[in-house]
């Protein structure tokens, strides 16, 4: 299992931050997922070994956190918030629009692997609702038209 130099530098640095090795687990899983795309059996094995944990212990933590996934996602994961503040300003309509436009449902991925779609809980953009995140980028005060432009921009990349 090979991670980037940046990952390795950050990992070694983080190990010095805590009295126990295990404490680096949650952020390390997310950084590993960012590089590999998902938490594959190989990634789980590697991280478990590095932290003196069993694979089961690592999987047990993965299943708790909503951002962590053991299944591949599209290159761009479109996360539309439909929690109350977004719902009141059209978040559900926005999600429906994305479903139609991308032709996929909640947690689905387009056949070409470009997009995944997810209905997510509050992402902390309530005052700029409705909002969505594409990977880690926030897109706020959205309308159906703006959402189309956002998706088109990503499609070009």
């Amino acid at each position: 299992m090979k991670f980037s130099d940046q990952f390795e530098a950050r990992f070694s640095d983080m190990l010095t931050h805590y009295p126990t090795k295990r404490s680096v687990l949650v952020p390390t899983l997310l950084y590993a997922q960012d590089e590999v795309g998902y938490l594959s059996p190989d990634v789980i094995h590697e991280i478990a070994q590095r932290l003196d944990l069993t694979e089961l212990e690592v999987s047990n933590v993965i299943s708790y956190y909503s951002m962590l996934t053991t299944k591949p996602r599209g290159k761009f994961n479109v996360q539309v918030c439909t929690n109350i503040a977004c719902m009141l300003r059209g978040g559900e309509e926005l999600l429906d629009h994305c479903k139609t436009k991308l032709g996929i449902g909640h947690k689905g991925t387009t056949p070409d692997g470009t997009f995944s779609l997810e209905e997510v809980e509050c992402i902390g953009a309530c005052s700029w609702a409705p909002a969505a995140q594409v990977n880690y980028d926030f897109h706020e005060n959205l309308t159906v038209e703006k959402m189309d432009k956002v998706l088109d921009e990503y499609r070009k990349n």
Binding site: A85, C122, G124, A125, C126
Partner: peptide, 11 residues
């Protein structure tokens, strides 16, 4: 870990 729906201040 700000995540209470309606809250976006710590951000």
């Amino acid at each position: 870990d700000e995540s209470e729906p309606g809250t976006c201040k710590d951000r």
